[in-house]
């Protein structure tokens, strides 16, 4: 394989990887973020205690979180076919990726919001804030640096899941490393694809850390 062919292959792979990762991450946040917020505010002693709803949410989130992605991927194929029009392929993978990621997002958001000092939330209550104001003007802005860190971790995790895409006929860098590298003994292709994937992970992690540092005013 020529240099040009290889870089073309990698570029396509990179595109496919991003094509799967970005929409599924965004969708996962669209659902997972409100769930995480709801999970925190309905917990005991918080601003909107609802013990039953909270317990229910906990069970659902934990259940979905405990299914390994590769199993979930297989289990979901019939549903994916209905939702995405096809059970397999790069585009169709967005759905199972999203399903596996949103409970993870909910957990990450929960963790970040729980880091916000209860005293600060209490102070906001004592000033006559509404529930919405406490969520949007206090909890989310106070947790922002941690939420960004969480988003980097979530993205990297989903990126990792996309490497299993080949199991459901999807593309991307992981798929290239396995099907066009490892399986046909083209080690250079496998390493090149893997290194590109690693570089992508590094870029996301480092950007997350930088943004966290820049946005966090808790340290002098």
């Amino acid at each position: 394989m020529s240099q040009a062919q290889l870089s073309n292959l990698l570029l396509n792979g990179l595109w496919d990887t991003l094509y799967m990762t970005v929409p599924s991450t965004l969708l996962a946040y669209l659902i997972g973020m409100p769930l995480g917020i709801l999970f925190v505010v309905t917990s005991e002693g918080h601003i909107l205690p609802k013990p039953r709803l909270n317990a229910g949410l906990g069970v659902v989130i934990n259940f979905l979180r405990s299914i390994p992605f590769i199993i979930l991927l297989a289990m979901l194929i019939p549903v994916t076919r209905i939702v995405m029009g096809s059970g397999i392929g790069t585009r169709s993978l967005i759905f199972p990726l999203f399903i596996s990621a949103f409970p993870f997002v909910a957990r990450m958001v929960e963790g970040s919001l729980n880091e916000v000092d209860r005293g600060v939330v209490e102070a906001a209550e004592s000033m006559g804030s509404s529930t919405w104001q406490i969520i949007f003007k206090v909890m989310l802005p106070e947790a922002l640096p941690s939420l960004i860190n969480g988003a980097a971790i979530v993205t990297v995790t989903i990126l990792g899941y996309t490497a299993m895409a080949s199991a459901a006929g999807g593309g991307g860098l992981g798929s290239i490393a396995i099907t066009k590298g490892l399986n046909v003994r083209k080690m250079d292709v496998m390493y090149a694809a893997s290194i590109t994937l690693v570089a992508l992970v590094q870029i996301i992690t480092i950007s997350g850390n930088r943004a966290n540092k820049k946005l966090d005013h808790r340290k002098r």
């Binding site: 000092d117 005293g119 600060v120 209550e125 004592s126 804030s129 802005p141």
Partner: peptide, 19 residues
Amino acid sequence: QRLRRKVSMIFQQFNLLMQ
């Protein structure tokens, strides 16, 4: 909520918004 605007509070740990 209206009452809490007329009866405000300060705390031992200050409880300021750190961001």
